[in-house]
Measured scan of single mutants.
Amino acid sequence: TTFVALYDYESRTETDLSFKKGERLQIVNNTEGDWWLAHSLSTGQTGYIPSNYVAPS
């Protein structure tokens, strides 16, 4: 499932994924509650993102 970032997010830990508003993200795993494992289609990096910062594209 592809989502789009609603806001900028700066990672707080090394497992988080930083992203910019408008960036497209492929969700890898969304069974972890409020933090989803995502892959950035812009940077190619993978990490955890706050689910309330993204919406379906």
Rank of each mutant, 00 (worst) to 15 (best):
Y48E: 01
F19S: 02
S51V: 14
G44C: 04
N30D: 02
S42Y: 05
S11Q: 10
S57Y: 03
G47K: 00
W36K: 11
L25N: 02
D8E: 05
H39N: 09
I27P: 15
T13Q: 11
H39R: 12
L37F: 14
G33A: 08
Q45H: 07
D16Q: 11
K21I: 04
E10V: 08
G44A: 09
G47Q: 00
R24I: 12
A5R: 00
P56M: 08
T1A: 14
G33I: 04
I27H: 05
I27F: 01
L41V: 14
Q26G: 04
Y48T: 06
Q26W: 08
A5T: 10
P56R: 07
V54R: 01
T2E: 11
A38W: 00
A5E: 00
K21S: 09
G33N: 14
S18E: 06
N30I: 06
D8Q: 08
T1F: 15
E32S: 13
N52W: 09
P50N: 03
A38D: 01
Y53V: 08
V4I: 09
T46D: 06
S42P: 03
G33M: 12
S40I: 03
Y53C: 15
V28S: 05
R12Y: 05
E10G: 05
V28F: 08
K21N: 05
T15G: 13
E32W: 08
Q45Y: 06
V54E: 00
E32F: 05
T31D: 09
R12N: 02
S40E: 01
A38G: 06
D34Q: 10
W36H: 06
Q45S: 06
D16F: 04
W36P: 04
L6W: 06
P56G: 10
P50S: 04
A38K: 00
W35S: 11
F3Y: 11
S40Y: 00
T15L: 05
G33C: 12
E32A: 10
A5D: 00
E23V: 00
K21W: 00
L17S: 04
G44N: 05
S40W: 00
L37E: 12
T2V: 07
L17I: 05
T46R: 14
G22Y: 02
D16N: 04
V54W: 01
L37G: 02
Y9Q: 04
L17R: 01
T15R: 09
L25M: 15
T46A: 11
P50T: 00
Y53A: 09
P50W: 06
W35R: 14
D8V: 00
V28H: 05
N52P: 04
I27G: 05
W36V: 09
A5W: 00
T43C: 03
V54A: 03
T2G: 07
E14A: 10
T43Q: 07
N29K: 14
L6G: 01
L25G: 00
T31R: 13
R12H: 15
E10I: 15
Y53G: 10
L6H: 03
H39F: 08
T46H: 04
N52D: 05
S51W: 14
D34E: 14
N52M: 06
D8R: 02
S40K: 05
R24S: 14
L17P: 06
T31C: 06
Y9T: 05
P50G: 04
L6E: 08
E14P: 13
S11A: 13
S40N: 12
T31M: 08
A38V: 12
G33F: 06
F3A: 11
T43W: 00
T46P: 02
P56I: 04
T1M: 14
Q45I: 08
H39M: 14
E23H: 02
R24E: 15
F3G: 04
T31L: 10
T13S: 09
T13A: 06
A5K: 00
R24T: 13
Y53S: 13
Y48N: 05
T13E: 15
F3K: 05
S11C: 07
D16R: 09
T43M: 03
K20Y: 05
L17K: 01
G22R: 02
Y48G: 06
P56K: 05
S18K: 08
G47M: 00
R24G: 10
T43E: 04
E23Q: 07
G47W: 00
T13R: 14
K21C: 08
L6I: 02
F3V: 09
E23N: 02
I27W: 00
V54K: 01
G22N: 02
G47T: 00
N30K: 07
L6K: 15
